[in-house]
């Protein structure tokens, strides 16, 4: 990837991370770990990949995005704020009474294409959107992000079967493979492994990428373009809590908010990263 583009994406991803911390800190709750692990992906999708913009938020030809792992709404909101769907200041209202930013995504929030968060459901809705596109000969694509723990839900595999059967090659699912779920490591809770083989057996084109390397990401999304008639899944190897040292690969940050001291440390770390990028 071109150096200046990469730098700009890094800067946006860092700002998304700051938004995640800002939101969960002010909410006194929420899910920073899995939000941080998809921050780079959100930057790439919203600023590089998807044909979306706030002034055509309901355009029937726009690309669609469904955050199937809806508990990582702070990452989606931070990306939407960066993109201009609403003011960054609003991130501080996350989960507050009267806020536009619900604990899990709600379709009535500007820029949110589907209510989600009850795990396993977003991918089905994404299938419906992709099928509608096919039926209407539209060229938009549908992106959906799943948690690696989320794929333990049976509905995910109903949807996987459906997407392959209906040749939804306009559907791209990304599995955020950070290896952790609320109760612990995937391997200890109820392992959904091997993940690539499972999707392959269901008739999907399977790709992998490094979730924190934009070159790797660009390569994967380029390969996703040409999947024949198969739906595509990209399994992104990520680090839960990425970008905040004390949150990285630590399951206790799945669903806990930073206190004041932790908030300040996290923001200082992210500001330092931002300065290094030159943002």
């Amino acid at each position: 990837m071109d150096g200046s583009k990469k730098n700009s994406l890094k800067e946006i991803a860092c700002k998304i991370r700051k938004g995640i911390i800002e939101g969960t800190y002010n909410a006194r709750s929420g899910h920073p770990g899995g939000s941080l692990s998809i921050a780079d992906l959100m930057a790439y999708l919203y600023f590089e990949k998807m044909n979306v913009s706030p002034d055509k938020a309901k355009d029937p030809d726009r690309d669609r995005f469904v955050l199937s792992k809806g508990h990582c709404a702070p990452a989606l909101y931070a990306a939407l704020a960066q993109k201009g769907y609403f003011k960054e200041e609003e991130l501080k209202t996350l989960r507050h009474i009267g806020s536009n930013l619900q604990g899990h995504p709600c379709i009535h929030t500007k820029g949110v294409d589907m209510s989600s968060g009850s795990l396993g459901q977003g991918i089905s809705a994404a299938c419906g959107m992709a099928l509608a596109g096919k039926m209407d000969n539209k060229s938009y694509k549908v992106y959906t992000v799943l948690g690696d723990g989320e794929i333990e839900e049976g509905q995910v595999w109903e949807a996987a079967m459906f997407a392959a059967h209906y040749k939804l090659n306009n559907l791209i699912a990304i599995v955020d493979y950070n290896g952790l779920q609320i109760d612990g490591r995937l391997s200890e809770v109820c392992s959904p492994e091997p993940i690539p083989e499972k999707f392959e057996a269901f008739g999907w084109k399977v790709l992998t990428m490094d979730a924190h390397d934009f070159d790797s990401m660009e390569k994967a999304f380029e390969q996703a373009e040409n999947s024949g008639d198969k739906p595509v899944v990209i399994i992104q190897k990520s680090i839960k809590g990425k970008g905040v040292s004390f949150m990285e690969d630590n399951v206790s940050w799945h669903g806990a908010a930073p206190n004041k001291e932790q908030y300040e440390q996290a923001m200082a770390e992210l500001d330092k990263q931002l300065a290094e990028i030159g943002g």
Partner: peptide, 26 residues
């Protein structure tokens, strides 16, 4: 036949697919 979508024996997914279709104007 082109407007009929058999989801197989998978009602949970069917309802979600219906939701996605509806969000796109169907």
């Amino acid at each position: 036949p082109d407007r009929f979508i058999d989801c197989g024996i998978a009602e949970a997914n069917m309802m979600g697919v219906a939701a996605g279709l509806a969000s796109c104007g169907k």
